[in-house]
Amino acid sequence: MQFDSFSDFLAMGGYGFYIWLAYGLTYGLLVGLAGYCFWELKAFHQNFRQKLARAQRVKQYQEIEHP
């Protein structure tokens, strides 16, 4: 352990602002990127299910109108 107390750890020997800025930006961007990648897959699934349901509805109506 390199620090005596938690506030010591946050201060980082006076360079706290730069270090926490770097780590904050890094993890902010990484979480954003991961969230975007998950969202893309989820959006595709939703879109795909909607298309499937729509195709099925169209098929049903066609069967009613032209049996």
């Binding site: 980082m12 020997g13 006076g14 360079y15 730069y18 270090i19 770097a22 780590y23």
Partner: peptide, 8 residues
């Protein structure tokens, strides 16, 4: 030389 900034 760089003190704690090296943690970046």
């Amino acid at each position: 030389q760089q003190f704690d900034t090296v943690r970046i």
